[in-house]
Amino acid sequence: MAALFTMAVQIERLSLMDMLAAVGHASARARLSKLLLDFRARLSPLGLVEHDVFDLPLTQEMLGDLLGLTSVHVNRTIRDMEREGLIARSDHRIKLLDVPKLQSLSPLPLRQLAFEPAWLPQPA
Score class of each variant (00 low, 15 high):
H25M: 15
L67E: 00
Q103K: 04
A30S: 14
V23K: 11
V53P: 00
S27K: 01
D65F: 08
D55G: 12
A41T: 10
A30F: 04
F5G: 07
D65W: 06
E116M: 12
M17G: 12
R29V: 08
M62P: 03
M81Y: 05
L36G: 00
L69E: 06
K34I: 08
Q103R: 14
A8F: 14
G85P: 01
L105E: 00
M19S: 12
I78E: 01
R111L: 13
L14I: 11
M1C: 02
H25P: 04
L35S: 07
N75I: 06
L105H: 01
A30M: 01
D52L: 06
L102C: 04
L97T: 06
L14D: 15
E84V: 04
S33R: 02
L86D: 00
D80L: 11
G47M: 09
F115R: 02
L108N: 11
H51K: 15
A22Q: 00
R40C: 07
D38Y: 03
H25N: 13
K34V: 09
N75M: 05
T6Y: 13
G47L: 05
L14W: 13
E116N: 15
S71C: 14
F39V: 13
V74R: 00
L32A: 03
E61C: 03
L110F: 11
A28R: 00
V74C: 00
S104I: 02
L66F: 08
L105Y: 01
E12N: 09
K95S: 12
S106P: 01
Q103D: 08
F39M: 08
L20M: 13
D52E: 10
L20G: 10
D38F: 09
S44Q: 11
V9C: 09
D98L: 04
R89D: 04
Q10T: 11
L43N: 04
V9F: 15
P100E: 02
P121H: 07
A114R: 13
N75W: 07
W119E: 07
A3V: 14
L120I: 08
T59M: 06
V53R: 12
E82G: 05
E61N: 06
F5P: 05
D80H: 09
M7C: 11
D65E: 10
Q112S: 15
L110K: 10
L96T: 03
A114T: 12
L102W: 03
D91Y: 14
F115Q: 09
M17C: 10
A114S: 13
V23Y: 10
L48R: 10
G68R: 03
